[in-house]
Design a binder for these strands. Structure first.
Lengths: 246, 246
DNA sequence: TCGTGCCGCTTACCTATGTTATCACGACAA
DNA sequence: TTGTCGTGATAACATAGGTAAGCGGCACGA
């Protein structure tokens, strides 16, 4: 098993052998499988552990009392599901599996000890959280200002780049388990309109999407259509801060 | 001068006299005034310091190449403008003053030292960041699922509660410097439609808004109209985590 | 082997919100 | 004193995207 948490955190800071070993131990300890479309955590519950996605796709979503639903983030391999155990008595959103999922569940106590004994890890988690907010801000822009066409194109660009950053693309394709309803929930559109818009993207030759496979034959074209700028993903992995101080 | 950063962080953890004194020193050191409608920091720039709002309103905004603009967050007294200096070579958004502003500017080095020497402060900043993401998620829900009417009602509820949590409301009123254009930029609507919708809210007796004063004669009504649930603001200030461990 | 349910797709129709333009008012600078 | 600009307000019209309903294909379980 590749240690995807360590990999992720390495993006932000240099971890020692000791740091990595500690992470590895915790991850191995808590591996769990979860069925597709099941909830890991529901709004209103008290979180007791942190989840780390090892395989599969999950999402964070919020609902309104009348049932309207918004997917507010997506999780793929290496993503940390919820640090909120540190502040929340009660979850203010739910976490759901999209595909069947392999996760590492880390208890609050274990996680706390990890952070206490490994300040470098704490720091990396902090940075990870800053990137998470940056993504959330871009989604805010996406929903507030982009048209349906741009919005979906933007979502596809983001997903493709994130998958690629953890080695889950091959050529110009990737596995893509979101249904049109999922895309609708993530973009604040209806499934009908997502369908219309996807066909438009197909007609323009920007996107192919059949089976559960997404192909982007012309990434530059898609990026232009979406007005996509990857700066908010902070994928550079350069550790600018550390290089200057270590 | 009230030390609003210390106040804010106290909400998450207990700070020692020493912690507070350190904060106080830094805040006093960097006080600056900024004119209304000026930018503190622009997308693309390299951030060199953290800003803490002492008085006035500011916002974070992002723009698309063709000029569409989205306000993605609002800052009021006590809010920390940008921790992004820790990961960003380049800002992925701008920070702008809405009113004239009094801020404390804290240099990267000073801030770094503060965190290094005061782990409690680091922890509190971490928590503060978790609340920031929670708010950003709620904005995502707001833009993706709520109607214009609900969206504006929701924004007003949030602002009112946040102002009230730092003592900036009196009775059912507060100072409210946002123009209709600002509200439009924050809710992903046009100014024309914001105008229409505000009048509807006025007609329903949920909101009064003249001069630069907002009055909410029936908060319960407004909350119901917005389907507003304040859980995401995490205002409880109970330090649940700490109470269990200290 | 036949249901049952999810998923992608389509069509006809509807409406919330955007667009463009105009006006009045007050603040402020020349 | 006049001009300019930002703000709130209105009106007539346009459209992106929502709603409701239904169809076919396919996976899966009884």
């Amino acid at each position: 098993m590749v240690n995807s948490l360590a990999l992720r955190l390495q993006a932000y800071t240099k971890l020692s052998q000791d740091d990595m070993a500690a992470i590895d131990r915790l991850v191995r300890k808590g591996v769990r499988e979860i069925g597709a479309r099941r909830d890991l955590l529901r709004e209103g519950e008290t979180p007791r552990s942190v989840f780390l996605v090892l395989e599969g796709w999950a999402c964070r979503y919020k609902t309104l009392p009348d049932g309207r639903r918004q997917i507010v983030s997506l999780f793929i391999a290496g993503d940390i599901c919820d640090l909120n155990i540190y502040i929340l008595k009660e979850m203010d959103h739910s976490i759901g599996a999209i595909t069947s999922l392999k996760v590492a569940e880390i208890s609050r106590d274990d996680f706390e000890r990890l952070m206490l004994e490994h300040p470098r890890i704490t720091q990396a988690l902090f940075w990870n959280e800053l990137v998470t907010v940056a993504v959330q801000r871009e989604w805010t822009l996406n929903l507030g200002q982009r048209t349906a066409y741009e919005r979906i194109a933007h979502l596809l660009c983001e997903i493709y780049l994130r998958l690629s950053s953890v080695g889950l693309t091959s050529g110009d394709s990737c596995h893509f388990p979101l249904t049109q309803v999922d895309i609708a929930d993530a973009t604040g559109l209806t499934a009908v309109h997502v369908n219309r818009t996807l066909q438009e993207l197909r007609r323009e030759g920007l996107v192919e999407l059949h089976g559960r496979t997404l192909t982007i034959p012309d990434f530059e074209g898609l990026r232009a259509a979406a007005m996509f700028n990857d700066n908010y993903l902070h994928l550079e992995r350069e550790g600018a801060y550390l290089d200057a101080n270590d």
